[in-house]
Structure formats: structure tokens, C-alpha cells
Simulated assay, not measured.
Amino acid sequence: MPLGKDRLLPGLLTAVLALAAAFLVHSLVPVLPAMTLAVVLGLLAANLPGTAVWVAGRARPGLDFAGKHFMRAGIVVLGLKVSIMDVMGLGWLALLLVAGVVLVSFVGTYVISRVFRLPAETSLLIATGFSICGASAIGAMAAVRRIRHVDTVLPVALVTLCGTLAIGVLPLLVHPLQLTPLAFGAWTGASVHDVGQVVATAQTAGTTALGIAVVVKLTRVLLLAPVVAAAGVHQRFSAAKAAGKAAASLPPGTLAASSMERLPPVIPLFVLGFMAMVGLRSSGWLPPAALDAGAGVQDILLGAALFGLGSAVRIRTLLHTGARALSAALAAWLLIALLGLAAALLMTA
């Protein structure tokens, strides 16, 4: 049953106010990405005595709505940042290296998460977020695999934490590793999770580093579509197989209820929308003002979604159940940093 606007309004207004605060802090301290601040404010709202009751009560329906539907809308608009020509400009070697980093980090993070005895669905979401584009990728994978909204909260918290860690740690390694701005930018783009975190990290080494970092990162973002499509094919095959087994186990002439359920789409509509926006950006038809407006809309949508997700995290529960998850995330973060560094050095040799 659809939620009435009166039920959604308190949570949506709360998200808007929190997002305004996040943008304000970001304007005062540019090194802190607004998206990361949105998650942090959500965490604070969920755990401070003065706000915890509000976000868990009257504001919860609207915050859940933002966490799910604004996330999907934000992924669509994210496509306006990706230009096929910019990606192809990296050259085939760089494209193969970036794809290799995504593939190996996806598989490696999933295996690490399972070694730490995390559930399969949680491991899948962590692997997707860490290897591709953070919370946006987690939202896309959760949708195509029909994973509950509440189960995305821990992966989003982990990918935000490790991406924020990269902002502080990676710039400190430029001189010890004797990296050129070009190599550092490529490393940042190949290994840091969220686009905003990539910008915050790479800009510490100048415009050259920032330019290559953004292009490499958006190449990873572009891989969101094929990865989600592959997950959708697998999900559809599994659902059809389960329905067939259920039907076969019933007496002749009886139709299994599960076989009557609509099979999940191979590619969700919002991922198709993302690809359409990539095509529109690559066409060159949109003026800079439209692209800037799209970037602003995307920040608003994803920021509100991330605040909604962050506001569902209870620190006490996270400390009780998330120790293994945190260990797995840090191990995966180290793996991706090493893979990204190796790819960056080969890319810029």
C-alpha cells in the first residue's frame, strides 16, 4: 500500500534540513564531501537522545522512502557525469586495467567478507560498493537482487567509513611512494569508493591528479550497468529455477504460487535510465549549464538517500554485530588500494 504524503513529509523535511547542514559544512570545509557528511549526520540523528526518537518514529517512513527511491533516482542522474569519449580517451590499456581492478576487487572483497563469516547478501553488497561506486552501487545491487532496504545499512556505513579513511591516508603516501600527480590521481580514481571522496582525495595533489582521478573513477561507475545486469540475469535464472522446482513438486494440474510471481527484471529501469543519461551526456547535446544542474540534482537526491540510510544505523547494534564486518571492510580496503596502486603505476608508466 502506498504511503500517504502526510506520512512521508516529516522524514523528507528532516532529510532536506540535514542535507542543507551537510552542504553548509562542506562549503566551510571543502575537504569533507557532502555525501559523507550526510551519512554522518544520519548516524548522529539516529543515536543522539534528542533526535533518535524522531528519526525512528514519525520521520521513519519518509527517511526510508528517501533511502530507497531517491537513491535510485540519484543513480539515474549520475549517468550525466559519465562521458563515453572521456572514458575511451584513457586508452585500451587503462580501460583493461580499470576493468581488471573492478573484477578482482569485487571477487576478492566477496571472498574476504565470506571468510569473516558475513552473510552472502551482505558480502555481495560490500563487494559491489567497494569495487564500483560506493553507496550508489549498493543501492543498485540491492534492487536487482531484491535485498531488503534495512540490509543495505551496514554496507553503506562501511563503504562510507573506508572511503573517508582514504581521504586522510592516501595523500600522506604520495611522497613515501614517490608518486607523480598523474599516478596519484589514477590511484585515487581506481581505488576510492565514492565520486565525492575521489574528488576530495585527488584535489590535494592538484588539477592534473584531479582530472585523471575523475575519469578513472567514472570508468568504474560505467561498469555498474554490466555488473548489475549480470546479477539480474543470475537472479532471474535462480527465481525461474525455484519456481520450476515448486511447480514440479505439486500434483498435476496445480500451479505453484511461486511460479505465478513476476520474475525480477534482468536490468532495473533505473539502471536503464542511468545508461540513457550516459548516452545523453556522451552525445554532447547538453550545455554545461544543464550538466551543472544535473550534478546539483544528483547531489540532492543521493545526499537525502544517504542521510536516510545513515539514520537507520544504531551504533550499539553496529558495535555488537559489526566487528567482523569492519575487519572485512578494512581488509578489502587494503586489497583495493594495492590493486589500484599497481594499476595506476602501469597506467602512467
Rank of each mutant, 00 (worst) to 15 (best):
G67M: 02
V77K: 00
T122D: 04
V111N: 07
L90A: 04
F106L: 14
F106S: 10
D86I: 01
G100Y: 05
F116M: 11
H69Q: 13
L125C: 08
L118A: 14
F65I: 02
F65L: 01
V40R: 12
P49C: 02
M88C: 11
V101T: 12
V40A: 15
L118R: 15
G100L: 10
A99F: 12
V40L: 15
L43Y: 13
A99D: 03
E121V: 14
I132Q: 03
G42R: 05
M85Y: 07
K68S: 08
I112M: 06
A99V: 11
V82N: 04
G79R: 08
T122S: 10
P119R: 11
M71W: 08
L44E: 03
L97T: 09
G79M: 10
P61T: 00
L103K: 02
N47V: 02
V39R: 00
G74M: 11
W54Y: 14
F106V: 06
F65H: 12
P119S: 13
K68M: 01
P61F: 05
L95H: 03
L44D: 03
V55E: 11
V87I: 14
S113P: 00
I84A: 14
L95N: 06
W92S: 07
L43E: 06
L125Y: 12
G91M: 08
L41V: 04
R58I: 10
G79P: 00
L125S: 13
D64V: 00
D86A: 04
S131N: 04
R72P: 08
F106D: 06
E121C: 03
I112A: 03
G62L: 02
I112S: 01
V102N: 11
L124F: 07
G89N: 06
I84M: 15
A94D: 07
V39H: 06
D64W: 00
V82R: 02
L90E: 10
V76E: 09
L124M: 14
S83F: 01
A59Q: 10
K81I: 01
V101I: 09
A56N: 14
A66L: 01
L80N: 01
Y110W: 14
V104T: 10
M85G: 09
V102G: 12
A127H: 11
R58L: 09
V82T: 06
N47Y: 00
P49A: 15
K68A: 05
A120N: 14
A59P: 00
V39W: 06
G42E: 10
A46N: 09
R60M: 00
L43R: 03
D64N: 06
A127I: 05
L95W: 12
T51N: 11
I126A: 13
A45T: 03
A59I: 07
V39G: 07
R114E: 08
A56D: 14
R60S: 13
G57C: 06
G57D: 11
T122W: 07
V82Y: 04
V102A: 13
V53N: 10
A38I: 12
T128D: 04
S123M: 09
G89V: 06
W92F: 08
G129C: 06
A73N: 05
V82F: 03
P119C: 13
V53A: 15
G129K: 13
A46E: 01
D64K: 01
V98P: 09
